[in-house]
Design a protein around this nucleic acid. Structure first.
Lengths: 217, 217
DNA sequence: TAGATTGTTAATCGATTAACAATC
DNA sequence: TAGATTGTTAATCGATTAACAATC
């Protein structure tokens, strides 16, 4: 079992962690549009929750609000980044460069959110050596050397479900500390390794159920 | 605001909904491996929660357990499918056939989980007419006719963030009831339309934070 | 200043955990 | 039968909502 109540000055719970990361996306849109301030009720309106919850979440950060005037968008964005640890670049590896792995590598703004894509790995000789998102695709067996060179301990797993557990075992052996699992296989790893499951098909199931059953109040 | 406490015989809360969909993946692996029964503690061991929570979740289904003997894997799988509404085929459309859209179309086992991919749409003339996952890529403007022909009301949005809101507006106009948003844009839609946000970059942020901060108890 | 809106505590609500009688 | 394990209620814990004093 894992302790989700991480001490970070104040405690950050999982629901708050998730919302903070999503607020950040909204705030960065405000930044792009040159909006300087945002109130808890504005943010709540966009996020579809309520101002009380927003303030309760932001209360976990170093204070950035100005009573009577709302939040400075830039300062709030920075404060979330700092609290989530996105101000130092975390080196990330992507394991498996099929459609899913390469889509993630190409589309995600890692560097904007405190991550750096330091390696993409595959076994298919046909794609080894090609460039994706300005990173060369390397052989799986090069993972240990990249881990050392880049001080990387985090891996996103995008291999076929059939080889997911084998690959996870290998990553564990290499000393990886976290695995973000995009495969459909439920991974078994030692408790010292953090696994986050991101199974799209489950998102679809939940989406279908909610779409059918949601009603307005 | 949306009422998450859907009546479905018994109430299904969001946390339970999420876990049930993930249990289903585990159960289907058991089926493949010809395991006939599973106990709440076995399932909990694999899912990394506890037997009490598993039983509390399964309690929301039509009962499938056998006191003293655990759950029949097949029956339990069927019961979850039935409760989640995965026994009738829900027609799904994918809007945007870039790397992400085509990766989802090709990799996800829709038909295994009560969904049918009835349309893939894009604007790029270069890919219109090609086949992905045995579905022809069609022009965005064909969405309304497909919606009618296939009785489809659910769309997964995989277009570039810059055109996400415009596309969402169009989907809403066409009468879509649910949007599963894979773009980085926070969508604004009328409250009658259900939106589920699935933002990978946020998963990565949460993953990085948890990997760094999780400690064993 | 007056109005707006935060920061923060308290109250409520909901989800998880514990417990155990029922029973296969 | 005895042991195992569910179904289900009760107790606890945590998250959300409400409220409002502080103050910009």
């Amino acid at each position: 079992m894992v302790d989700n109540n991480i001490k970070f000055g104040k405690l950050l719970t999982e629901p708050t962690l998730q919302r903070l990361s999503e607020y950040l996306i909204i705030l960065d849109e405000f930044v792009e549009n040159n909006k300087k301030t945002i109130s808890s009720s504005e943010l709540a309106e966009i996020y579809s929750n309520n101002a009380n919850q927003v303030r309760q979440d932001l209360f976990k950060l170093q204070n950035t609000g100005r009573v009577g005037h709302g939040y400075d968008v830039m300062k709030l964005s920075q404060s979330i980044r700092k609290t989530l640890g996105l101000n130092t670049e975390s080196p990330i590896m992507i394991i498996g460069c099929g459609k899913m792995g390469s889509a993630l590598a190409e589309h995600l703004p890692f560097s904007k959110y405190g991550m750096e894509l330091v390696g993409i790995f595959d076994v298919d000789p046909k794609i080894l050596g090609t460039d994706i998102a300005e990173v060369k695709v390397r052989d799986i067996k090069d993972i240990p050397s990249v881990m050392i060179a880049e001080k990387s301990e985090l891996a996103a797993l995008c291999v076929p479900a059939s080889s997911a557990q084998v690959m996870a075992d290998r990553l564990v052996k290499y000393g990886v500390r976290g695995i973000l699992n995009f495969t459909r296989k439920r991974l078994q790893v030692p408790s010292r390794v953090y696994v986050r499951h991101s199974q799209f098909i489950c998102s679809f199931m939940q989406f279908v159920f909610m779409s059918k059953n949601v009603d307005e109040i």
